[in-house]
Every structure is written in structure tokens, then in C-alpha cells.
């Protein structure tokens, strides 16, 4: 038993000149589109993983996945036959791939038949977020078990410890004692200039190793192009 992507969808800014959607509403929008395209019975979804980072109002609990499960009306109550387990994964920009790895593992272990992965990010609290460096957006992927050849072939995750601190995001408190400083807790971002270069080098090495392990030919375009696009 392996796993494959059955459907995927994206929910962006739409036509509104000023996007006001929160991460949950974008995630729900993307998930609904994804489920519509899949033509499966949504109650068959065994696990729902949310892997966005910047969540509405910086909610710490419950898992954002449980809000999405509720809004999608996915087995909101267990009836003994159908049940969905929802939780969040946080792994920076690797969250979606990590969630797919977990979904693939759960499906291959026979713990779930379908896994819905949802990611969405937006400014959590506008006046308590400083220089949010990302565009808001939401996406969803439905992964299903399959006995056919193909599908998700392999994963590889490497951590480059020296690059761990080159991009940081955190909430910190300031007491407003300095001139012009507001009192409160603020979401902040710190990016080292080495982030782009380190990210490209690390990604290139990881992809090379994965291709080598699976005896696949390396026919990629130079990663610098991709890097310029997503950084």
C-alpha cells in the first residue's frame, strides 16, 4: 500500500483589493475546493492536518485543524463507524511536506484511508504584527491510499543546524517604556541575509541526495530561479 495525491486546491486573495480573510477561512475555502474536486465521501477522511504557521489571533489551542474540521462538517461527532482525528503540524515552510510524510505514514500503516492536509497563513493581528513578510494564501491536498504504482515515491528531510537561526519569527512583549514604543505583545520576524543562499544550498543538497537514493535523473532547472521566486 502506498499513497498518492487525489486532489489539490488553492484559495488566494480573490478580487478584493484589500484581503481581509483569516487563515481559518482561507483554509476552509481551499479544503472545500479540494474535496469538491476529489469526489470522495468527506466522512471517509481519517486525519486532518493543518500546517499553517501564522494563525488567526495567534491561537495556541485548540488545533486550528479542529476549527477547519468543524466548518467542513467532517465527522463533527464520532458515530462509532466514522471518525476524524485533527491536529496541527508546525515546521516552518516544510510544514506541508512534513504533513504529507505523516499522512503517507498513517495511510501505509493502515491507520487512515484518506488524509486532508490544509495550510493557510495570514496576518494574525494587524496592529500587533510587524512587517509580515508573506502574502496571505491557503492550500489543501487530499492524500489517499493506493495499491497502484506511482504516487508519493519518497521523502527526505535534512536539518541544517547552522542555518536554523537565519529566519526567526516570534511573539515578544515590550513594556512601552521607550519613547514611541507601544505596550503589548508583537509578532516579529528576523531574516539574516544568508537565508536565501543557505536555503538554496541546503535544498539543492537534499534534492540531490533524494534523487540519488531513488536512482532518478537530475533534470532540474537551477534552483536559484526557484529561490528568487519563493523568497
Amino acid at each position: 500500500m502506498g499513497s498518492m495525491i487525489r486532489s489539490a486546491a488553492f484559495a488566494g486573495m480573490g478580487r478584493a483589493p484589500l484581503f481581509r480573510g483569516g487563515s481559518i477561512s482561507m483554509g476552509v475555502k481551499a479544503a472545500k475546493k479540494c474535496l469538491d474536486r476529489s469526489s470522495i465521501d468527506p466522512s471517509e477522511i481519517g486525519i486532518l492536518i493543518f500546517c499553517g504557521i501564522y494563525r488567526d489571533e495567534n491561537i495556541g489551542e485548540p488545533a486550528i485543524a479542529s476549527f477547519i474540521q468543524s466548518k467542513l462538517s467532517l465527522n463533527r461527532l464520532s458515530n462509532g463507524e466514522k471518525a476524524t482525528f485533527a491536529f496541527d503540524i508546525l515546521n516552518s515552510g516544510c510544514g506541508v511536506l512534513t504533513a504529507m510524510h505523516v499522512a503517507d505514514s498513517h495511510i501505509r500503516s493502515g491507520l487512515a484511508r484518506y488524509a486532508l492536509i490544509v495550510a493557510s497563513d495570514s496576518v494574525p493581528i494587524r496592529d500587533h504584527t510587524e512587517a509580515f513578510p508573506f502574502a496571505p494564501g491557503g492550500g489543501a491536498v487530499l492524500v489517499e491510499g493506493t495499491d497502484k504504482a506511482g504516487g508519493l515515491v519518497d521523502f527526505r528531510f535534512d536539518t541544517y543546524p547552522t542555518d536554523g537561526e537565519v529566519f526567526r519569527s516570534f511573539i515578544e512583549y515590550q513594556d512601552g517604556s521607550r519613547k514611541g514604543e507601544r505596550k503589548g505583545q508583537f509578532l516579529r520576524f528576523e531574516r539574516d541575509p544568508r537565508f536565501l543562499e543557505g536555503g538554496i544550498k541546503g535544498a539543492d543538497r537534499t534534492v540531490r541526495e533524494l534523487l540519488k537514493k531513488n536512482k532518478l535523473r537530475d533534470c532540474r532547472r537551477p534552483l536559484e530561479w526557484t529561490g528568487r521566486w519563493w523568497m
Binding site: L48, E57, N58, I59, G60, E61, P62, A63, A65, S66, F67, Q69, S70, L74, N75, R76, L77, S78, A83, T84, F85, A86, F87, I125, H128, I171, Y173, K183, G184, Q185
Partner: peptide
Amino acid sequence: QFTTLAKFCDLCIGKPLKSEI
């Protein structure tokens, strides 16, 4: 065995404060 009874997702919500620590 794990189940999320998402109908009750809003019964307990934890989040950071805005103006206080």
C-alpha cells in the same frame, strides 16, 4: 485511538494577550 469531536472546537480557546504579557 484518537477522535476529534470538532462540534465542540470552541469550548476552550487559548491565545496570547494583545496588550499585556
